[in-house]
């Protein structure tokens, strides 16, 4: 088991090296220049003046030199400084990563537990009104884009009912109540597609297992229905559910870009969006690297979960 985990973790290195080169190259390949954005469109300047500012940020050096410099700092744990805010990226991440992680965890919880439960019930009570209700809910969940849902939730819970504030984020450590009050709507909007997809997959995975011979045997030998379900059905249905869940939780990170902007949360999604728009090279590079690491770690975690659930996979 230990070698299995280590082998998976070792794969991180080439993946992240590749990511670093791609993101370093891509953000520089798109048109636009960080210095002219800092200057804006109304200022007058000569090319020499622009060059002087570029020099002060080290942007005048050849690309390979810039890359090697950056990487040599990264391996020491220093992700560099934002061109615009002049804060260190580690400091910014310390501020923003917890927000996004909290959002993703909340969305994950909201998205998985009720969805899996509903999926199992829909499968067991196949073709009942419960099943149809769940299927319709799924369809809506998959089809409604989360930005529309977010706007709707603001209208209903902030504008009409006035239960929750539309803005006004507070840190979890400083004011947990206010923090949850501002987190709940974004987490719900973010979790919707996840919940819908997960519920569908659970239903079909459980249905498939239910029709298999060993389940029939278990029933035939007189096991109670609950034991059949937990010991024989769910355990076998869990592999495809974990796969889909793992991928979906990782893509939650992508959804945070829009959700964090609508609800004014200082998370990492909004941060990277702004960094890309402003060509803040060090931030884009640093944050993409960190997000990729998280993404890869989640898939390693999913792999490990497989191995836990299914001993046959441990030796591959």
């Amino acid at each position: 088991m230990a070698t299995f985990v280590l082998r998976r973790l070792a794969l991180l290195i080439p993946v992240l090296l590749g990511v670093s080169i791609v993101v370093f190259g891509l953000i520089r390949a798109v048109p636009g220049d960080p210095v002219s954005i800092m200057i804006g469109v109304d200022q007058r300047y000569t090319p020499e003046q622009i060059e002087a500012i570029r020099r002060s940020y080290g942007l005048d050096q050849p690309l390979p030199v810039q890359y090697v410099k950056w990487m040599s700092h990264v391996v020491q744990g220093d992700l560099g400084r934002s061109l615009r805010t002049r804060r260190t990226i580690t400091e910014e991440l310390g501020l923003r990563l917890p927000v996004t992680i909290e959002l993703a965890v909340l969305a994950g919880l909201i998205g998985t537990i009720p969805a899996v439960t509903a999926g199992v019930i829909a499968a067991v009570k196949r073709n009942s009104w419960l099943d149809y209700g769940a299927t319709i809910a799924t369809l809506i969940g998959v089809s409604v884009p989360n930005f529309l849902l977010a706007t709707l939730l603001v209208l209903i819970f902030s504008y009409w009912l006035r239960w929750l504030p539309p803005i006004g984020f507070a840190k979890l450590t400083e004011d947990p109540v206010q923090n949850l009050r501002t987190m709940i709507l974004p987490a719900v909007s973010l979790s919707m597609p996840l919940a819908a997809i997960l519920m569908r997959n659970t239903r079909s995975a459980v249905l498939e297992v239910l029709s298999q011979d060993h389940v029939r045997v278990a029933r035939a030998k007189g096991l109670p229905a609950s034991t059949v379900l937990t010991r024989h059905v769910l355990k076998n249905a869990s592999i495809p559910i974990i796969t889909v869940g793992g991928i979906q939780i990782a893509t939650l990170l992508g959804g945070t870009v829009i959700i964090e902007t609508i609800f004014g949360l200082p998370g990492i999604g909004r941060y990277i969006y702004e960094a890309i728009a402003n060509r803040d090279y060090p931030v884009v590079q640093g944050v993409v690297l960190v997000i990729s690491t998280m993404f890869v770690l989640i898939s390693v975690a999913v792999d490990i979960l497989y191995a836990v659930m299914d001993p046959r996979l441990r030796h591959r």
């Binding site: 902030s158 539309p166 803005i167 609508i262």
Partner: peptide, 9 residues
């Protein structure tokens, strides 16, 4: 930053 959120606030 969001217009809806600003008006609602």
């Amino acid at each position: 930053a969001d217009d809806t959120a600003r008006t609602t606030a």
